[in-house]
Design a protein around this nucleic acid. Structure first.
Lengths: 133, 133
DNA sequence: TAGTAAATAGTAATAATTATTAAGTAGGAT
DNA sequence: ATCCTACTTAATAATTATTACTATTTACTA
């Protein structure tokens, strides 16, 4: 995993810093994170990390299409770049779960209507069953 | 329209105030608005209106399902309650356009998977042709 | 390994939204 | 129709997430 992230950064001609590698690794492990959450997780292994670095790094990684983001609950959420899925924001637990569902037809329909969307987010707000991962 | 909004508020057992009526009328006329935009539009006809009132009113109207909202570009956008459509955020113009597309199947699929979503938003970020309304 | 452009840590600033509170008002009871 | 009271408003303060700034440090290049 460590090697992969390094390669990914190098392929994008980005400088490989420990901060960038760690942010990318964290997000690529899976799940959904806010900037603050990433920051708290990183502090455990890299106590000197700065919150502004976390945000700037997330921005850079997204601009380089290594991760993606969407907005819900007044916050930006980051996740590993992946296709066709729906993010369900559990209002009762303040977390996101992924629902596997092919949405490529949607992009196709939009394309037919002349919308070449560069970023699509489907977010459902729902009360979730806490037994579900 | 004025009468309709009044009726709508009364049916929800909400006090009918000039501020509420005007916010509801504005949103129901169509389009997409941020809190700030509603505020600026309202000031023309009701100069004493307060920004906090606008936000609180929008919150109340949404809680009573008279309007709906979604998030993109670091802001909350409000629109009239309507079914099956996709909001396209034009990054080059900082505005939203509606794309008519039936998405009821999506809700059905989610229901099958046990997600009884109470709020769905499909947002596409795209560079828009300014000739399009 | 030395030089330099880019990245980081720390902190200040910003922007959107929410909370607070004293004063005003809508709508039911009298 | 007027009075009462709980709800609403205006004004402003506070909050929260994120971005901007700047001096220092570091990753890569030559």
């Amino acid at each position: 995993m460590e090697v992969d992230s390094t390669k990914m950064l190098m392929q994008k001609r980005l400088k490989v810093t420990p901060q960038r590698s760690m942010v990318l690794n964290l997000v690529r492990e899976g799940g959904h994170f806010t900037g603050e959450q990433i920051y708290r997780l990183m502090k455990k292994k890299m106590p000197g990390i700065s919150l502004s670095t976390v945000y700037r790094t997330l921005e850079t990684l997204e601009a380089n299409e290594l991760i993606s983001s969407f907005e819900v609950s007044g916050m930006k959420w980051f996740e590993s770049k992946m296709e066709s899925h729906i993010n369900v924001f559990c209002v009762n637990e303040n977390k996101i779960i992924d629902i596997d569902l092919d949405t490529s037809w949607l992009l196709e329909e939009l394309r037919k209507k002349g919308i070449k969307g560069n970023k699509v987010s489907i977010v459902v707000q729902s009360i979730c069953d806490s037994k579900v991962k």
